[in-house]
């Protein structure tokens, strides 16, 4: 407990001026390599060359684009839910283990993170294709007669995206769970709470910041997902990122591509603000 308290006190060592100087390289990099190009790209959406909302209007008025944005949001939400349901128990286990077992579970979470998204997505193709491992197993067990269509569906996209994004859910939750002193749960158990009650009333609420951080990261990454849906999804699983790339590289309509990007970014920012609001509310629980 005492060690945890002192760990945050390093913030006081540096004066605000020193902190600013130390941050300058990062701020310069952020402004030069991120803010400026993104700003220029987004400006293209509304200046062509004079101010216009025609590109934004085209995106909002077309049912095609509205539908794709809604589907993207729906898939991102479903992936976030699935990653949370699968990730929380793993994070809980990681925070409770020690020694070799902890190392093993941590490796299981981190190694996929270091593997290319392309490789992980292709692995799903190998598993789920018509004559793949899963269909082979189902037939061997006598559960199905012919091969099932497992690949190139929206469900496959959900499964593969959840798999790819799972570490981004587990790690923040794990961080939050590790920060909860074991004494709290012991105290709850001491005062007569059962395992379930102490989890629901003590551990879960205290891990909420980690849950929100994990959900936010996974949701935002899902909104911009590109490779996995393209590889394992069917043609109807069009996502926002695919549409933007079509406009940018196939049609060279950069103003419209940036209008679509602007809408995606605006939607993402709304989600961030709403999540932040939830986060600050949850602190008061």
């Amino acid at each position: 407990m005492a060690a945890r308290m002192t760990s945050t006190s390093t913030a006081g060592i540096y004066s605000p001026a020193t902190a600013l100087v130390l941050l300058l390289p990062l701020i310069a990099l952020f402004c030069g390599a991120f803010l400026y190009p993104v700003g220029r790209l987004l400006a293209m959406a509304v200046f062509d060359p004079d101010f216009t909302v025609r590109h934004l209007a085209k995106a909002v008025e077309s049912p095609l684009y509205v539908n794709v944005f809604l589907r993207t949001a729906r898939i991102a939400a479903a992936v976030t839910l699935a990653a949370f349901a699968l990730g929380y128990p793993v994070a809980l286990l990681m925070s409770r283990l020690s020694g070799r077992a902890a190392l093993f579970v941590t490796a299981c979470v981190l190694v996929p993170l270091w593997t290319s998204v392309l490789v992980r997505s292709y692995a799903w193709i190998v598993l789920l294709q018509t004559n793949g491992l899963v269909n082979g197993l189902l037939r061997w067990l006598g559960l199905t007669e012919g091969p099932l269509k497992l690949l190139y569906t929206e469900a496959t996209v959900l499964v593969a995206m959840t798999h790819v994004l799972l570490p981004y859910m587990i790690l923040p939750i794990y961080g939050a769970l590790r920060a909860i002193p074991a004494d709290y749960e012991r105290a709850a158990r001491n005062l007569g709470a059962g395992a379930v009650t102490s989890f629901i009333t003590v551990t879960l609420p205290l891990s909420l910041p980690g849950i929100f951080a994990g959900c936010l990261i996974v949701f935002i990454l899902s909104l911009g997902f590109y490779i996995t849906p393209a590889l394992v999804g069917g043609p109807e699983t069009l996502m926002a990122a695919t549409l933007i790339s079509q406009q940018a590289t196939e049609l060279l309509d950069w103003p419209f591509a940036s209008a679509l990007s602007l809408l995606l970014l605006a939607g993402t920012l709304v989600v961030v603000v709403v999540f932040r609001r939830f986060l600050s509310l949850s602190k008061g629980l």
């Binding site: 095609l64 079509q246 196939e250 309509d253």
Partner: peptide
């Protein structure tokens, strides 16, 4: 007709 074809195509794929 690239933009028109792609628009119609994307819409058709999603039907």
């Amino acid at each position: 007709n690239r933009p028109l074809m792609l628009d119609r195509w994307n819409t058709w794929l999603q039907k």
